[in-house]
């Protein structure tokens, strides 16, 4: 069975390998930005690439439990890794935006207050903070059931990130809508379980 083979292979892959593979784009993108590989205006391009990778990681993270429930593929051990990587890319995205793009604290604050798409992007980042802080083994052990409930914050984070992308686009563009649709579909898969849990 393919599923068994995937599960066996996954058991052999250490989580640190996922970190390494998924952090390769960081130096590659920085190099490209410096050498013209990201086009004539690399700041926006870099900001956008980092944000898009973060969003993809959020989506990958949301795929893990449905993969186990519906197909039997067990990648649970990578879920926290994916989450930490998503947070890492969000931080880089935020840094490029604030330092290289906006270039002033006043304007950063003004943008967060005045621009709704930035406000919700920032809200997603703030909701991610407790998740990142409790992503270590000690927290998982200490918080127990609370940890699991706390990490349901991933759902609003995913929705806010998807809306953030749709909202910042000019005109009627396909790509951000595809991202948001995928996120909403992955969350919809969880509705029956959540309803059952609330009911009991």
């Amino acid at each position: 069975m393919l599923v068994d083979r995937i599960n066996q292979a996954a058991r052999k892959v250490p989580t640190w390998a996922v970190y390494i593979v998924y952090l390769i784009p960081v130096p590659v993108l920085l190099y490209m930005a410096q050498t013209g590989g990201l086009g004539r205006e690399p700041i926006n391009a870099l900001e956008r690439e980092l944000g898009e990778i973060a969003l993809q990681l959020v989506i990958i993270g949301l795929c893990i439990s449905p993969l186990r429930r519906f197909i039997g593929v067990n990648l649970i051990k990578f879920r926290r890794t994916i989450g930490v990587l998503a947070f890492t890319y969000v931080v880089l995205h935020l840094l490029v935006w604030a330092v290289l793009d906006v270039q002033s604290i006043d304007r950063v604050v003004a943008d967060i207050i005045k621009r709704p798409y930035i406000t919700i992007g920032m809200a997603a980042f703030i909701l991610m903070l407790p998740l990142a802080l409790t992503s270590n083994n000690t927290s998982v052990k200490w918080l127990g059931a609370v940890w699991r409930r706390l990490h349901l914050l991933t759902y609003p984070v995913a929705i806010l990130s998807g809306v953030h992308f749709v909202w910042l686009s000019k005109g009627f563009q396909l790509e951000p809508l595809v991202y948001l649709t995928v996120i909403l579909a992955l969350l919809a898969l969880r509705v029956p379980t959540l309803v059952r849990k609330v009911a009991t």
Binding site: A33, Q34, R40, E41, P42, I43, L46, L100, D101, Q103, R107, A110, D111, K114, R115, P116, Y117, W167, L168
Partner: peptide
Amino acid sequence: VDHPRWSQASERMVGGGLFAKR
């Protein structure tokens, strides 16, 4: 007069690289 989604008070000249000032 700002665009509803971003400020129009400053701009960035294309071609200034990764550290282009506004």
